[in-house]
Write a protein that binds this DNA or RNA. Structure first.
Lengths: 255, 255
DNA sequence: CGTTACCTTGAATCTCCTCAATACACGTGG
DNA sequence: CCACGTGTATTGAGGAGATTCAAGGTAACG
């Protein structure tokens, strides 16, 4: 197996084979056929291990690789010239990173590792073969892209229309649900590896105002956020702030 | 035999054949192979003509059809229970409508015709054949989905981080560029068939504040917006307000 | 000619922002 | 071991920016 990757890749002598991928067991993902599993195992060219804070993609650049998150969290964001930053979404295990770069020849947002992460690496040039020979997987790629779009739509609605408390409730609830699906929650707690500044840049408020709104929500007993752990104390209260959300009816694919 | 087609799908007596689609001539779109053109002509099952104000899709529902816009404008939006509305994007000729419904079995936003529109109708069940037999077109579908995602990202950044004048400048400039690509602009003017309320719901401000900000921009000579026509008087001023924007490097596909 | 939809403007109020200062945890070097 | 810097969280105060309420104007239309 040739090894010709750069950046701060550590040698992973024992890359997880796709057949034994821990994500595969989760209910949230669809089952692969043997053929698909075979192809994907072959598609995967290695693993990339990066430390928290590392920039994975930079807006306006390109990359010969496509990634999925195996473990850890990352976040996608855009910045304006004067430094204002908008967080678009958080990437958790099973999520694609850099699909745009493969399709547009340029990526329109940056991506940074929020925790230490392990990424599965897929060479961009084989994406065509995937489309050519594995229609089901091609559909999956489209599914994932469309899903990203629908999440961005939810965030856009949130930032454009909801008030401070509702925005925070939406984001925390959304991340909680995702953590649950991935088996990352213990009871009603999960590890939330972000700062209040990340949250502020997600919901479009200043850090100070985010902090004060968090205080209000804490006081009304909605959640506890101590250190890196978030405990959802009163899920109903958060749901009431957010309102109903439409979710896809088809199972999540996974490459 | 009356030619009046309303709300319901009609067997259009003279549907535009894809080979003679006026959009095909535009530089902004990639060229099809004869084979692809053949398939798409066959994929298209008819045309749907709808009046301005008609709801094309309703959030949370489903549809056996997939549409592209042939002529006219539509807009995608989401609403909260109390009526607050967020416009996500505007659909212009060449844009998909309802791809999500085909992929998720449910659509996560509503779509309404902004002007009278003509839509090309594609039966959802043939999408699989497209993926199976026309890899290039399958890639195109993914391209369009990913492009929607990147536009939503720009809007999210706009609503989350830019101030009032910048938000308006961004949206107007974005629509102007799109109109230019589609050959809908005459000089630096184009038909902008929306109200200030649509704009307000796009940028996340109240109607009143949107109106007052528009006045400022008009006063500084950036544009004129009279009736349904928008004239970009000083493009540089708008660009300065918005800053640089990353665009895809691959040509836009078209189904 | 009255209704309706849209645009415009002023005034009062509230949300959110910026500035500024403090507090705490952590890691580093002296 | 402590002193110090750094990153993060917290809180208060004053002001800019956005909202709501209210009223009036204009153009289109049946």
């Amino acid at each position: 197996m040739p090894k010709s990757k750069k950046k701060s890749e550590t040698k992973a002598p024992v890359a997880t084979p796709c057949s034994k991928c821990p994500l595969r067991k989760l209910e949230a993902f669809r089952k692969f056929t043997d053929e698909e599993l075979d192809f994907v195992s072959n598609f995967k060219s290695g693993e990339l291990v990066l430390g928290a804070g590392t920039t994975i993609f930079s807006e306006g650049t390109n990359s010969p690789h496509l990634y999925t998150v195996l473990t850890g969290w990352a976040f996608k964001y855009k910045t304006l010239e004067d430094g204002r930053r908008q967080v678009l979404n958080f990437a958790m295990p099973g999520d694609f990173i850099g699909l745009q770069a493969s399709i547009f020849d340029v990526i329109t947002h940056s991506v940074e590792a929020l925790t230490d992460v392990v990424l599965c690496v897929f060479p961009r040039e084989k994406l065509w073969t995937l489309y050519k020979k594995h229609t089901g997987l091609a559909f999956d790629v489209t599914w994932l892209g469309a899903h990203e779009e629908s999440i961005l739509g939810e965030y856009l609605m949130t930032v454009g229309q909801r008030r401070a408390g509702e925005r925070i409730a939406f984001v925390l609830l959304h991340l909680y649900r995702r953590a649950q699906q991935l088996g990352l929650a213990r009871g009603n707690s999960f590890s939330l590896p972000m700062t209040q500044e990340h949250l502020a840049d997600t919901i479009g408020f200043s850090l100070v105002h985010t902090n004060k709104t968090l205080k209000q929500l804490r006081k009304m007993g909605a959640f506890k956020w101590t250190g890196t752990a978030l405990e959802i104390v009163d899920e109903g209260k958060l749901e009431a702030l957010v309102g109903p959300v439409v979710e896809p009816r088809m199972p999540r694919p996974f490459i």
